[in-house]
Computed example of a mutant assay.
Amino acid sequence: MNQLIKVDVKNNQQVLSARDLYNGLEIAQRFSRWVDKNFEMFEENIDYVPCTSSTQQNQYGGTKEIDDYTITISMAKELAMMVRNDNGKRYRKYFLKLEEKWNDPQEVVKRGYEILQDENIQLKLENKKLKPKATYFDKIMASKSLMITTTIAKDYGMSAQAFNNLLKKLKIQYKLGGIWYLYSKYQENGWVSSSTRIIDNKPRIITKWTQKGRAGLYKLLKAHDIVPMIEKLDVKTVTIGG
């Protein structure tokens, strides 16, 4: 079927420009008067929605925005019926064929399948946005190795010194004799593992974080809106995409 007028699909409904129909029907009166005379029997936001369209302003290619309406196929069919000439009959028949094809069971099933595909794609995108948060915590729980403060600090985009000072500010640890110690409420949680090494002929205590401690820090810091860099990137991606 040859296209008589441009018809789009929005919100699972066939719609077109009232201006395009007005021009196709070759209405003699002004567009605004045609609208005032014929739109009273239709409901705004159900049969039609006000909008604008572009038109050429001069021979040099300039354009300007003019008033228009997005109307349903059903409304367009009735408007065509009101025009008692060959154009009105031709457009009415065209809209009837479009409605017949739109309501064909095969077309209904096809549209339903496309909607399901779109919903599945959207669900996958949403799951992908959520995945980095779960991945970071899952990585913590899956690992059994001990970690130095520098490594954990990098997850948060900080230096070891800045990260240690942050934990001090949050009353998680304190420094004594050049060594960091957990406050008593965290000491028995199995968050750290300490060992003694001889460096420059002097014994030195080396403290590393267990994965349980890393997970504990994650929860405590998140309660203060401090999250790993991977989750910060995820929030920015959602904002841009939204």
Results as ranks from 00 to 15, higher is better:
D200H: 04
S74K: 12
K232L: 12
K128E: 14
K154T: 15
K110W: 01
Y60F: 14
V238Y: 06
I73K: 12
A76P: 13
V109L: 14
Y94M: 13
K212A: 08
L217A: 06
E114I: 03
R19C: 11
N11R: 02
D155I: 11
F95C: 08
K101C: 01
T72V: 10
L4R: 13
A215W: 07
I230K: 08
S195N: 05
Q117R: 04
R92W: 09
N201W: 04
M41C: 06
F137K: 09
T149S: 15
V49R: 07
I226G: 01
R84Q: 15
L221M: 04
L16W: 08
Q122H: 00
T135P: 00
Y113G: 05
K144N: 15
R214H: 03
K93A: 12
L98V: 12
F39N: 03
R33V: 04
I199T: 05
F137P: 00
G61T: 09
A223N: 05
I198W: 09
G112L: 07
A18D: 13
L146T: 01
G24P: 13
E119I: 03
P203F: 07
L220H: 10
P203N: 00
Y174S: 06
K89T: 10
I5G: 14
K185R: 15
N87Y: 15
K37E: 14
M158D: 14
A142T: 11
S193E: 15
E100K: 07
L166Y: 11
E188N: 15
K10L: 06
R214T: 09
S194Y: 09
Q187T: 07
L116R: 02
P203Q: 03
K212C: 01
R84Y: 09
N38S: 10
L21W: 04
L221I: 03
I66A: 00
D47R: 02
K185V: 14
R30G: 03
V192P: 00
V108C: 00
G213N: 04
Y22L: 11
R197A: 05
T55Q: 14
I205G: 00
Y22H: 15
T207H: 05
I230G: 01
V235A: 11
D118M: 06
Y113N: 09
Q56V: 09
L176H: 10
S54R: 06
R84M: 12
T239H: 00
F39V: 05
E114H: 07
S195K: 01
G24Y: 14
Q13C: 02
W180T: 10
Y156F: 15
I240P: 00
D104M: 12
V109Q: 14
E78F: 00
Y113E: 07
L182D: 10
K202H: 08
M82T: 12
D225M: 05
V49H: 02
I179C: 12
E100W: 03
R30L: 12
W102D: 13
E231M: 05
M1L: 13
M1Q: 13
K208A: 03
E40R: 07
Q56N: 09
I152L: 15
I46R: 08
I46G: 07
R197P: 02
Q161G: 09
I199K: 10
N45I: 06
I140P: 11
K131T: 02
N85Q: 11
K101G: 01
M141A: 10
M82Q: 14
Q173F: 07
